[in-house]
């Protein structure tokens, strides 16, 4: 048996001929992103998510039309705002869940260790998964957008061009969702606990605004009013904080800013989104370095 071994016995060449580190990392990120995207496209969950968004949007528009018909009002404000928000939020939830398993599952299975036998480091791996996550999100939005356009054409309801701007910039907020998922994935002890932690986080993110709204409804005449004031203040602070941290809050605020053509507000949200994404990505890299790649 003969196999070619042209470089095997040669003495190691000088370190200067090694490609720069950023080039190696970029190569790794590209390969991982490409493979993850291909894997997503060959999976059923991608197409299910792509179908559910437009389906729920159609349901919402149908209900809106029924309301208009029943009430006799000929006014419908922002008929496609909620459908677009539902579609983008669903896509962001999907990629957050995808990212939550992206590191934890291969680590459980032992294949993450094998990946690190190659010239791969944490920056390349996390970077590759972020690229893949954003690409998957963008594809989901690209599939949904013409379907929403078709819905607008069929119902004769207006689809504001500014909403398209909201759709166009939404991948920036999706980066935050991916990075948070990756951060959870790197630090969780197993894939099961990673999903549990994601679920718990989403519950908390939902509970805070709902809780705050509930507390606002406590009348001043109630005997619990004074006792609950502190809690209301705390919930308000947490809610305000979430508005700047949560990718879903940023998505909603960003889409709203685009609809209102409030460009200053939109740019502010985009900057916060980019900064937030970088912070979470850095935490994910740190988490992977700290926790390691072994099961």
């Amino acid at each position: 048996m003969q196999i070619s071994t042209s470089t095997v016995g040669k003495e190691r060449v000088a370190t200067r001929s090694d490609p720069p580190v950023w080039s190696l990392r970029w190569r790794v990120a590209r390969q991982i992103a490409g493979q993850e995207l291909r894997d997503a496209l060959f999976g059923w969950s991608f197409y299910l998510t792509a179908a559910i968004g437009p389906f729920l949007s159609a349901l919402f528009v149908y209900n809106s039309l029924n309301f208009v018909a029943a009430s006799g009002l000929l006014i419908q404000a922002r008929p496609f705002y909620v459908p677009v928000l539902v579609t983008t939020t669903l896509a962001a939830l999907y990629i957050a869940a995808w990212a939550t398993l992206a590191i934890a599952r291969p680590r459980d299975q032992g294949s993450l260790r094998v990946l690190f036998f190659a010239p791969v480091d944490e920056y390349g791996v996390i970077g590759g998964h972020i690229l893949a996550g954003v690409a998957i999100y963008a594809l989901l939005v690209l599939i949904a957008a013409p379907l929403l356009g078709l819905l607008a054409a069929l119902t004769n309801l207006p689809f504001p061009p500014l909403l398209l701007v909201g759709l166009l910039v939404s991948p920036v907020f999706a980066v935050v969702a991916v990075a948070i998922g990756l951060c959870i994935s790197t630090i969780a002890p197993s894939s099961r606990s990673a999903m549990f932690f994601l679920g718990a986080t989403l519950l908390v993110v939902l509970a805070i605004p709902i809780g705050y709204t509930a507390l606002l409804k406590v009348p001043p005449t109630s005997r619990y009013y004074d006792a609950l004031l502190f809690l209301r203040g705390l919930m308000q602070t947490l809610r305000d904080l979430l508005n700047w941290i949560s990718p879903y809050a940023l998505l909603s605020a960003g889409t709203d800013a685009a609809m209102r053509a409030s460009w200053g507000d939109l740019i502010q949200r985009l900057v916060v989104g980019i900064a937030g994404g970088m912070v979470w990505a850095a935490l994910a890299i740190w988490g992977l370095q700290r926790r390691g790649v072994l099961p």
Binding site: D39, F42, G43, P106, Q109, G110, S111, R113, V114, F117
Partner: peptide, 9 residues
């Protein structure tokens, strides 16, 4: 590696 793992698609 010992115990080769190929869980990919």
């Amino acid at each position: 590696a010992e115990e080769p793992v190929e869980a990919s698609k």
